[in-house]
Design a protein around this nucleic acid. Structure first.
Length: 147
DNA sequence: GCCAACGTTGGC
DNA sequence: GCCAACGTTGGC
């Protein structure tokens, strides 16, 4: 049986979450730019996750330190390429573009309080800056944001 | 290859 | 500002 190509494509898309300190680069900076290259990742696990991103994947934008909340959704517009800001070493960047801000940002506190989200990197590995989310995890956060 | 020392991130 | 968690570095 053939799967319609639209559905097939939907099934392979992955979900991600990236962290950024808003004092360094905020969601509003991102919206103003319309697109950005996600450079500066210097952690192997995070870099490997960047490498798995596919064009069209959806990515939550999380504000660390000051806000501690998921504030928006972006999409991958260019897959991994060598990070131009890396003077040495094998580091990667991707290009992201904003889709939309969440109606209500989802604070870390609420994420931690939800049993369905207890396995996400944000909770289990606090320092990881680029992490995958399962489809249910992604939808749970989306629902918490109130459509 | 082990592990102590050190550096960084990020929540509290 | 503190500190836990984690990653990296470098001496042995």
């Amino acid at each position: 049986m053939d799967i319609p190509w639209v559905l097939a494509w939907f099934l392979v898309l992955m979900k991600w979450l990236v962290k950024q300190e808003p004092s360094a680069y905020s969601w509003s900076d991102f919206v103003k730019d319309g697109k950005t290259s996600w450079t500066g990742v210097r952690n192997y696990t995070a870099r490997n996750n960047l490498g798995k991103m596919k064009k069209g994947d959806q990515v939550f934008f999380y504000h660390s330190v000051e806000d501690k909340a998921v504030v928006g959704i972006a999409r991958v517009v260019r897959t991994a390429y060598p990070d131009p800001t890396a003077k040495e070493g094998d580091w990667s960047a991707v290009d992201l573009a904003p889709i939309k801000a969440l109606a209500r940002p989802v604070p870390l506190q609420r994420i931690k309080a939800d049993r369905r989200l207890k396995n996400i990197g944000l909770v289990r590995q606090g320092r990881l800056s680029v992490m995958p989310l399962t489809e249910p995890e992604f939808r749970t956060i989306l629902r918490m944001a109130g459509k």
